[in-house]
Each structure stands twice: as C-alpha cells, then as structure tokens.
Write a protein that binds this DNA or RNA. Structure first.
Lengths: 168, 168
DNA sequence: CTTGTTGCTATGATTTTCATAGTAATATGT
DNA sequence: ACATATTACTATGAAAATCATAGCAACAAG
C-alpha cells in the first residue's frame, strides 16, 4: 500500500511551510472543499472531485492523522463512515475562501463571471469576495454565510454525479 | 527536460479548483513566499526554500507562464534575471496570509509562539492574524503592513543561507 | 441467489521528485 | 595568462507518487 505520510515533524518555523505540509496538495484541498460543501461520504467526495479512490482514501487518511478530519460511523452493518471537519479543519476556511477569491478574479475569462455567490446572513446582502462583507463591511465568517452556486456550475456538479453513478 | 506544464485549460467552473491548478503545489507556494519576502534572485529562492534547482526553475517557469511572475534583466553581461510578482501574483497575498494564520495557529506547539509579526502601518499597531487588523479593525492589505520575523526564525533563515553558500 | 450499494484495495504503466553532480558564461584576482 | 568565484541553471538516474483500470468485501433488497 502507499505509504501513509502525514505531515512530517516540522523542520522550519515558517508558518506557511508548516501549513503547506498539511494542506499543500491539490487533492487535499479539493477534498476539504467538498467537506465544506457538506458532502461527507466517500463516494460524494470522489464524484465531485473526480479523484481516483486511492487519491481520496489517501487524502482522507492523512487529513485524519493531521487532525483536520474525523471519521464518524453512520452505519454499523455494514460498517460505514462519514468524514467531518474538526475545529482545525474548519480553521482552513479562510484559506479556501481566499483561494476562491483568487480563482474567481484571476483564473477566469471575463465573460465567465462568478461561479458562487455568498450571502452574508448578518446583513442579508451579498458578501462578495471578502475578507470583509462587500455590503456591510463586517469581517466574514463561515457560520454567517450561505453559499449558492450559479445554475451553470450547479449543472456541472450534477453532471459529475450522474457520470460517476453511471460508471458503476 | 521536464515537461513544462502550466495550468491546463480549465475543465471546471469551480474557482478553488481553478486556483489550485495554478498555485496548488507546495514548492510553488514557497517560491511565492520568497517573492513576497522580496527575494528576487534564483539563488535566494533556492536557499531559503531548500528546493533543488530543478524544482525552483520549473516553478518559476510555470508561474511565469501562468502570469504570476515576470522575469526582469538585472545584468546584461552575464545575462541575469530577477523574478518579480505581477498584479496577479500580488493577488495571491490573501491566500498566503490566511495560510500563515492557519500555520501559526494550528501547526505549532503552544510554546513555539508566532514566527512572524505584522505591524499595521495605518494604525501603527500589531495587525494580528487577520483578515482585519487586530488593533484597529480595518481590513488588512499587504501594502499597509510590515512583516518582522522573530529572532529565532530569522536565525533559521540566516543559517539556511549560510549552509547554501557553504555548499558551493 | 442474483443484483445493487458503498467503500474501498490491487496492479502496473507513467510521471514526478529528489539528491547529486556538472555545465555555461562571465568577472575578478594574481 | 590562468585559476578561482559567482550566478543560474541542466543532466542523470534512483525512488516515490500518480493515474487509469479493475476488482473485492460486506452487506441489503428483491
């Protein structure tokens, strides 16, 4: 089996490098994206990220070892687990949110527009790309926002799910 | 030579996935860290990140192709280049800042303390871990802050430089 | 007792990474 | 003139990670 390498003991004081040993991997970030999107099952994560089962299994394992994710039994027979974010995992949200802002702003052609819109529950208006609410100026926290996908992006996600299901 | 693979044409609307195709790599992030730290020369980046020359060369090339970095001639004979952030590259700062906050908060033993301290020039006081200034509450921008390393972390950096120089 | 569901693991080809070493172009010192 | 230093890489080969494809295990439902 692939060696299960969690974050190695830190050889630097640099906080960025420390963080990168834990979350500095494309698949890891995509897995976290799905957990933040409240998809907790293995197959959901696999379907929406498009990863191979080994990629997903390996990332979930290291995330668990690194303390960002916990496994929770949701069925005893057959034994099945769901994956949930711990507090440490939740703390990754600002990074994901900043990454999303970068992606929306710099990794799209102008006519594509945004793929996600966040509403700030505190003020009831659009939150924008952060870090503070575009409408009311307050710092944004995940708990105070709801995310909505554009129809086009939602359709892409649905298609991924269908394609995944069809391939079984 | 290693294939020069810049971000492939996007197959998803997800802004996080788009961003990850550009910056979803440990070495890439460390290279960007050095550029934000105003180290613009190849050997500085190599020394402080600890990467092999190929790793650094490859990342700088893809960053250039992806438009986050420009090469600037600083010596005609011999021909030498410096690497600088473009606007797109500068836009990565919030991600790096959030990553640093995550690293400082969740990837250290309690007694290690912070490795870097930012001062908010707007108010003259400590900026904290963001996204808004801990002292005055204003949203933080890179241009309005100065970063200072703790002596211990600075010593680590100096040692890396010395070790690099000694190995040539 | 066959088919479906969910969550993985096994295999082997391909790709990437890493450590070590070396090259190229030029300046600088003796 | 000639050796040494500086800067920025490139070459090589072994080790590790990744990917696509396939398959398995444990049950439930019909």
């Amino acid at each position: 089996m692939a060696k299960l390498k969690a974050a190695p003991s830190p050889q630097t004081l640099c906080p960025v490098a420390r963080a990168e040993t834990v979350v500095g991997d494309r698949w890891t970030v995509l897995v976290l994206r799905e957990l933040f999107a409240r998809n907790h099952r293995f197959e959901e994560i696999q379907a929406y990220t498009g990863g191979t089962p080994q990629m997903i299994a390996a990332r979930l394992k290291t995330l668990e070892v690194d303390g960002l994710v916990t496994r929770r039994v949701y069925s005893k027979r057959p034994l099945r687990h769901e994956y949930h974010l711990t507090n440490k995992g939740e703390a990754f949200f600002p990074v994901l949110f900043a990454l999303r802002a970068f992606g929306e702003t710099w990794c799209k052609s102008p006519r594509e527009g945004l793929s996600m819109n966040y509403t700030h529950l505190t003020c009831g208006k659009p939150a924008g790309l952060g870090p503070v609410c575009q409408s009311c100026g307050e710092p944004l926290h995940r708990a105070d926002m709801v995310a909505e996908r554009t129809p086009k992006y939602q359709r892409e996600r649905d298609a991924r799910w269908e394609a995944f299901k069809a391939s079984r």
